[in-house]
Each structure stands twice: as C-alpha cells, then as structure tokens.
Design a protein around this nucleic acid. Sequence first.
DNA 1: TAGTGGTCTAGACCACAAC
DNA 2: TTGTGGTCTAGACCACTAA
Lengths: 247, 247
Amino acid sequence: MVIERRRSISSQVSSALSERIRTQEYASGSRLPSESELASEFGVSRATVRSALSRLASEGLVIRRQGDGTYVNAHIDHIPTRMGGMWNFIRLIENIGRVPSIHLLDKQVRPASPVEAKALDLEAGTSVLSMARRFCADGVPVILAQSAVPLELLRVPAEECNGELPLGDFVSLYYKQDINHLITYAIFDIQAEMPEAEIRRRLEFDSTEPLLRLEQTFYDKANQPVFYSLSHLRDRLVRLRLVQAWE
Amino acid sequence: MVIERRRSISSQVSSALSERIRTQEYASGSRLPSESELASEFGVSRATVRSALSRLASEGLVIRRQGDGTYVNAHIDHIPTRMGGMWNFIRLIENIGRVPSIHLLDKQVRPASPVEAKALDLEAGTSVLSMARRFCADGVPVILAQSAVPLELLRVPAEECNGELPLGDFVSLYYKQDINHLITYAIFDIQAEMPEAEIRRRLEFDSTEPLLRLEQTFYDKANQPVFYSLSHLRDRLVRLRLVQAWE
DNA sequence: TAGTGGTCTAGACCACAAC
DNA sequence: TTGTGGTCTAGACCACTAA
C-alpha cells in the first residue's frame, strides 16, 4: 500500500483492511494479524492501526476480543445495510443483489412547504429545489423520495442539476461545499404508513400493503439543515436492516 | 470528579461531560472548553479527553469543528432516540415524556420455532425461554415484544426469571455473563406491517393502522446469537428516531 | 497570528484468554 | 506464561478558523 498524504493514514489503513476482508484475503470468521504485526507491516504506529480497526469494529465488520485477537465477522456477510447506509438508497438496492436506477419524476423550484421550512429551518416561503425521484431495483419501483434543498446552498442554477444522481454525487457536484466537509450528522424518523393513492400510483402498485415512511434531515458542521427528504419504501422488496455495534 | 479505577478514565470523563450537558452547565449550542483545558481540569491527557469527546460526537451530542471548537448540539435536545437506543423500549417511552411499564403476557419454555432457531443458530427443537411482553406509556399499550432466549444461556431456572424487567436488567441478572461483556452487536430489521388480530388484541386497539415491525438479534463476543426478539410498535404513539453522526 | 481540533508516534502498563 | 487487545501518556506537528 502506498501511503498518500491527502487522506489520513488511519483511513487508508482501514480501507486496505476492509478491502482484504472483501476479497477474502482475510477469510470470513478468521483471525486478523495482531495489531503489532499490522503496525509493522504498514509501517505505522499501533495507535494508528487501532484507530483503523475501531472504524471497522463500529461497522460490525470485525470483532475484537481482548486477550485473543481480532476476527472477521462471519454474520455480517449477509447483512446488506450497515448503520449509516440508511440514507444511501442505491446501496440499499445493490445490497439485495439488484441493479439500481433513479428516475426523476418531478423537479421544480417552489416555496418550501410548512413541513420543509420547519425541517430546513427556513423562513416560510423561502425557495427550495424540490425533486420527486423513484428508485427502481431491476426496473421495479421500490422507493419514492421527495426531497427539498435550500436554493441558496447550490452553486449552480437549479435547471442544471441532474435529478438522477445519488445524494452523494448530487451534493458533491452542486453544493457549495463538498459532502464530506459538509454533512456531519443526520436525523431519521421511521414510521409505518398506508400510502395515499398518489404514492401508490407513482410506485406503480395497487395492493393495500403498508410502506416504510422515512423522514431524513441532514445537518452540516454549522449545525444547519442542508437536505430534507421524505421517502416511502416498499419494505417487502427492499429491506431496511441495520447493524449496531457496542463499544 | 473522583476518578475510580474500575471504569476507564475516558468513559468517566465522557459521563461527566454528558452530565454537564444534561444539566445545562454547558448550555445548548454553547462552546465547550478546549480539549487542552478539559485535559488540565480532569488531570488527564488530551488523548483521553479526545476519546471521551469522540463518544459524545458519535452520539450526535456535540459537534466538533477544527480550528473553532466543540459545541453542544442544539438540535439534539428534542431527539428522543440516539443510535443504539433502538433496543431500549423503556428509554424510547421515557423519551416521549411518558411513564413506561412492562407487563408480562406470557412466559413458557418451549422448543424454538423455525424462525427463532434460525435466528439463534440453534438445532431445531432446542428449548428456549419464550416471553410475550407489553410495554405501556402512561398505561397505554404501545409496544408488543415476543422474545426468545436459549435456555442454556441462563444461570437460573426459567421459572425464577422476572419477565417484567428491561432487557439490560434481565441479561445482567439471569445470563451467565454480564451484558456489557456479553453483547457486542445487534442486527435490526425494520418493516411496516398490518398486524394480525391477535397482535391488535394484545395491544388493545382495533383500528387498521399499520405497525412498525422490529426484528432484533443480539450477538455476543464469540459471535453467537444470545437474544432474539420480534416486536410491534405503535409508531403513532412512540416514535422511532435515530441520529447518525459521520466521522 | 493565535488557538482550536485532527493526526500520529513511541512507549508504558493493564486485563484478559489461550496454551 | 505468553501474546492479545484495552487504556493512557507526553509530545509533536498539521489543518483549519476566527479575529
């Protein structure tokens, strides 16, 4: 592994390790080299290796046992969504082994609705870029997302924004700041809901099955909301699964 | 703060800091003392303070800004559930400002159902302690939980287990190992569901509102499942909200 | 420019599990 | 007993923000 200067060393080490797990170089359930060995191999301090391993452990990818060793978590192989993958619908769909696609149903600049204004901490009537998007798995509609972005945060005109990009790309391309430097945390609200006719129509199904209603608000470092989205998921088709690791 | 030897120093520091936030000693939105100042005050190294602050940041309780300072997250005041609080129904109910109570509806030792056997990685027909429990908020039923524990993990006879204890207490009292040393991670599966008549009856409501269906499996350090639970939440009454902090 | 948080190091000691 | 991960320190330097 070539150490670059741009990214932090511990982040590069953790990427390298998770890559080895992905490629089965460290087989599922097997024990990793000890922290000291990894430190020698990468030419970094043990503290740096520990920082990298902590990240993997918090994702549930490895399990650390004092006095014993660090092991690849065998159960996690089949878990599609780690904590934090909840906002990433593309990954959610890929994780069930389907090919994801995004279709823009509607895009307009309009005054924020009362709910959006409250969530985004805007004056009533402030303009937002509103988009309705449909996520499909192998062409089957599975998620409907209605999102709102404060116009003032965009560095390009709303007309030039491609509404069929994943959230990460969208933010990287059109926001005034990079997503990694922009978003620090998000709040999710999960409910079960019987969808209205309009939502059923847009998801192209007509049964009476309830949907997962997922409300998401993303905040930046200044603790200002920068993205709001209300989504409906056909949870029979795309599963919402999370991993929670203790410390 | 008196430093004890039992708990780790960083854990004690993080408890002390979150207590100060709770009591408004550090007001909502205000800046905390710098890491160096906190290190001097507690008489520990800056690295230890950083470790404590990292925990709070991952819970979304504080926001750290390089070159600026560490701030109490003002938005989090109204967020009832941090990531990881999902398994704690008592806290979920307290967080909406209600008084929680647990009622045992059913308790028996029986062979694991196929679903339970699969989740708990048991041979078909292995005995489990099965409990049906109802959680109330101010006396109103809001959550129904059906749990299964492998009998062999208990250090007391099933008859002596009090079924009206929160999960943490239950594990502490009756499992062969302490919960903090036992459970390392959990997997959650969330769906929306129209409840069967039996579930509606036990939750004492009769409308056609859909419920959140929450499937939880807890794993120990040896990566063995130790607790399985299938719950139904009246999400109109008790909200499922999560905070996800980036690194 | 001063002060903040972010990263990294080298070394020490401890708690714990396997042998 | 040996080797593992868990904790902590003191110090250094960097990246960034605010004044």
